[in-house]
């Protein structure tokens, strides 16, 4: 379960996120939409305890980001837009490293890493330096890294950014799989097609505020538009 409870983040007199409240229950995929600079990444970073909120709070699996930041991190898989792979480590070394930091016991880590390598089909390049991998290969390694510790909640910041259709499809299938396993998934994106394909519910954020929320049908009804892209533009323009 992911919960935002009136979360705000100010930089001086600029409100990056303002009074954001939303819930993502287990087994649901929630898409967070917004223009560049709308506050999506800031909100996700606050949830991942990378940034301290100015007001309000949020929680992951019942752990509050203010009082239990380490427990939040233990229960959250976070995939940043930048992927965050070490160029001079191989995928296998990288997974071992993060497995260690996530607290997976030494006697279980090796097996878990091999499971991930097998699940995401990394075997052919598991011992090649990450700096020499293609974008699609790197994204698969990144996702393997994010769910290595099998967290109940997942946050994916623009997971298909820069990927071709084939690589994107791997991500879609992965998200479907974790939903089926009862994980709460919150992802941000600019791709309306993947929202339509994956999301159970959608939240639209503009100027740091959540200006619309609901299923795709509810969003379309609310805006009076025929497709999600038009509905998004309509809602964001109205909020401006």
């Amino acid at each position: 379960m992911i919960v935002f409870d009136g979360l705000s983040k100010w930089y001086g007199d600029i409100a990056a996120v303002s009074d954001l409240s939303l819930r993502v229950p287990p087994g649901e995929v929630y898409a967070l939409l917004g223009a560049n600079g709308a506050g999506k990444t800031t909100a996700l970073r606050c949830l991942a305890t990378l940034l301290a909120p100015t007001g309000g709070t949020a929680s992951v699996a019942g752990f509050d980001i203010r009082s239990d930041p380490l427990d939040v991190r233990r229960n959250l898989g976070f995939l940043a837009a930048s992927m965050g792979l070490y160029q001079r480590l191989t995928p296998r070394e990288l997974l071992h490293y993060f497995g260690g930091l996530q607290g997976i016991p030494d006697d279980q880590r090796g097996a878990r890493v091999e499971d991930m390598i097998s699940f995401f089909d990394l075997t052919s390049f598991a011992d090649r330096l990450c700096g020499k991998l293609s974008t699609g290969q790197r994204q698969r390694v990144s996702i393997a890294r994010a769910i290595l510790h099998d967290p109940p909640a997942l946050v994916l910041d623009e997971p298909t950014l820069g990927l071709d259709l084939l690589s994107g499809d791997v991500i879609y299938r992965f998200i479907d799989a974790v939903r089926a396993r009862g994980r709460a998934v919150l992802f941000s994106t600019h791709q309306m097609s993947e929202v339509e394909l994956l999301a159970d519910r959608v939240g639209i954020i503009a100027g740091g505020r959540l200006v619309a929320e609901g299923t795709i049908e509810e969003i379309l009804t609310q805006s009076g538009e025929s497709n999600l892209a038009k509905a998004f533009l309509q809602i964001v323009r109205e909020a401006a």
Binding site: R45, A48, T49, L50, L70, D71, R73, R74, L76, F78, A80, A81, S82, M83, G84, L85, Y86, Q87, F98, L101, Q102, G103, R145
Partner: peptide
Amino acid sequence: ERGTLETLLTTPVP
């Protein structure tokens, strides 16, 4: 610059 620090700081390590 490589975006790895953000990932590192999401691990449960102070």
